[in-house]
């Protein structure tokens, strides 16, 4: 359990002094590196899911993008959390090559922009910025909850993070994983999978799955291992 964020209001933004602002640029670089590791480990699974309802390129595309992010961060970590996410998002847009490039790129860039130029941010501020980034993804894609997309993992994750005042990253992780699993019975309404109509039912969405990996990487960067104080769903693995 994290418990390190001390903002009693949980609101974060405009909080007093440095209270609770524990997340620095190194933390965000660690998040991106953890994400690159997870995507690398799970790339074959993502591609397998994408071969069921998509064009079988999600794992390779995501690995190419996050490998480039990892390499860039290995050379130089920007000074602020916002700058780390903005440069990582920019890298994804330029390297992924599929729809997940602009979608994840927009998620990270808008989240980073919302964090501004603070050198350290609180968990609550991160939750609020993530909400902004997720809303930008929804606007770009025209997708909503229940459309069998990455939003079905991201929205419950940010809900859980906000509900805990930005403290419970493990709960966000569990919510994202459960959200990804719950895309299985849904019918796709966006992207290539939507052409399949009812035949998209019965397959877990690859975008929601990679989004859950991104949230899991965030929890890992925060030091919250899987299942720890997840609140629910931690033992519901496939």
């Amino acid at each position: 359990m994290s418990g390190k964020v001390t903002n009693d209001s949980g609101a974060g933004a405009g909080g007093e002094g440095d209270g609770g602002r524990e997340l620095d640029a190194a933390f965000f670089a660690r998040w991106m590196t953890e994400a690159a590791d997870a995507i690398g480990r799970e790339a074959d699974r993502l591609t397998k899911l994408d071969s069921a309802i998509g064009d079988a390129d999600h794992g390779g595309n995501m690995r190419r993008g996050f490998d480039a992010v990892r390499q860039e961060l290995a050379e130089d970590v920007p000074a602020t959390p916002g700058a780390v996410l903005m440069s990582s998002g920019r890298k994804l847009v330029s390297t992924v090559g599929g729809a997940s490039g602009p979608l994840y790129g927009t998620l990270l860039r808008r989240t980073g922009k919302a964090l501004g130029d603070a050198e350290r941010v609180s968990g609550a501020e991160l939750a609020s910025a993530l909400r902004t980034g997720i809303e930008a993804v929804a606007q770009l894609s025209g997708a909503a909850a229940g459309d069998k997309t990455m939003l079905d993992a991201l929205l419950p994750a940010v809900d859980a993070l906000e509900d805990s005042g930005g403290t419970n990253f493990a709960k966000a992780r569990a919510a994202a994983e459960r959200g990804a699993e719950e895309t299985t019975p849904l019918q796709a309404r966006k992207g290539r999978a939507s052409y399949l109509g009812e035949r998209s039912v019965g397959h877990q969405d690859p975008g929601a799955t990679s989004a859950a990996l991104l949230v899991a990487a965030l929890a890992a960067a925060h030091g919250d291992s899987a299942g720890e104080d997840a609140g629910f769903g931690a033992d519901e693995g496939e």
């Binding site: 920019r90 847009v93 599929g98 729809a99 979608l103 770009l140 290539r192």
Partner: peptide
């Protein structure tokens, strides 16, 4: 379609 449209929109937003 798809990523072509999304990439252009993202670049315009930049």
């Amino acid at each position: 379609l798809g990523s072509a449209v999304l990439t252009v929109k993202t670049l315009l937003a930049e």
